[in-house]
Design a protein around this nucleic acid. Structure first.
Lengths: 198, 198
DNA sequence: TCAGTTCTTGACTGGTTCGTCCATAACACT
DNA sequence: AGTGTTATGGACGAACCAGTCAAGAACTGA
């Protein structure tokens, strides 16, 4: 009954993500996004409300997709749990090293810029982090069932440690650490995890 | 021979740091800083050049003071090296947890916002991180000499790991992790460091 | 006391940016 | 085809902001 949208909302969100990711929230102009997507500003505002709401959409999407991706990497049977954990940790190091533009992770960047003054962003980041920790914890528990990690260790605490290492790798990557340093951190972190005595 | 400055440069830098730290670079207005310091904009520009230069000054100062502070915490004799390391790691966790405003560390926040597009900031962050790693490495080597950490471990790699954990604690704190989680991470990280076999 | 120099103040400029508005376009249903 | 509804695009308004400038103030050394 009404004129249909000519643009794909998904695509606009992806483009907006790109802009916010590379420039940050404050430094990205709505007009940049309009030009990059080919939309007029009217359409942009009509469809998403405003800059803040658009960012919230983008940020929410991004957090969800990160958790999804990690979930795909870590879920599986007990036998491969340690291998999955190892692959994940190394993948984060490799991805961070490959990110020559040093944009890091939008979750970290957005939280750093806005969490203090934007409760919505703060809350979303918190739930994403909690989800990531839970995924790690489940995988570590699987490692323990399979005898790859000491059974008497607290999987929640090890998961928190691994998560801190992963976020730390991101942070160091943004500060310009070399690929070698990052992969060393990944390797060392996996090496110091408590193995079962035999 | 000329009219003397009425303001203390140090104090202005501290106030500017406060503003940049809490609002980020892009979202902080020079007029905010002028008002907060009581200076007119002309004085501000006359003394510091411009927004970017002022931020560079502030950022450089901050990086230096962080490295200094850590240096004071970590330098000392071999006998207390592990205790100093432990105290430092726990201090970072406690400070992060106490930072209820979640502003995190200006080094991380500034790098996150600007490193991608500002080579000066990127370089300064890099040298600060390298200095921190060196301090940790020296302390860990001291631990090894004192028999608190396995002598066959690579102190540089352990230092990189510890640094990643510390930066990760900061990042998780900003994302809203609880004090308990953060201190658990600190405790667990220290616990998994390789001890000498005896 | 006076001259020379630097500092201060705040109004002003020019450019930028968020968000709005409106005339027009595109479609669905009758 | 006609009508109602929603999308489009870009001009526009209002606020904001970095940086400048000029007139006057404060101080020192002569």
């Amino acid at each position: 009954m009404a004129r249909p949208r000519r643009f794909d909302e998904r695509q606009v969100l992806d483009t907006a993500r790109e802009r916010f990711w590379s420039g940050g929230y404050a430094a990205t102009r709505m007009e940049d996004i309009a030009e990059a997507t080919g939309l007029g500003k009217g359409s942009l505002y009509g469809a998403f409300g405003g800059k803040q709401e658009l960012f919230h959409r983008v940020f929410d999407d991004y957090c969800g997709s990160v958790v999804d991706a990690v979930s795909r990497q870590l879920r599986g049977n007990d036998a491969d749990a340690f291998e999955r954990l190892s692959a994940h940790v190394h993948a984060v190091a490799a991805a961070t090293a490959a990110d020559t533009a040093h944009r890091g992770c939008l979750l970290a960047k957005g939280a750093a810029e806005l969490a203090e003054h934007d409760e919505t962003v703060a809350k979303r980041a918190r739930t994403a982090i909690e989800a990531l920790q839970k995924l790690l914890e489940d995988d570590i528990a699987a490692c323990q069932r399979n005898g790859d990690i000491a059974a008497d260790a607290d999987p929640g605490k090890l998961a928190a440690l691994v998560l801190a290492v992963l976020r730390g790798i991101e942070a160091l990557g943004k500060a310009g650490a070399s690929e070698e340093t990052l992969t060393d951190i990944a390797r060392t972190a996996l090496a110091v995890l408590p193995r079962p005595a035999h």
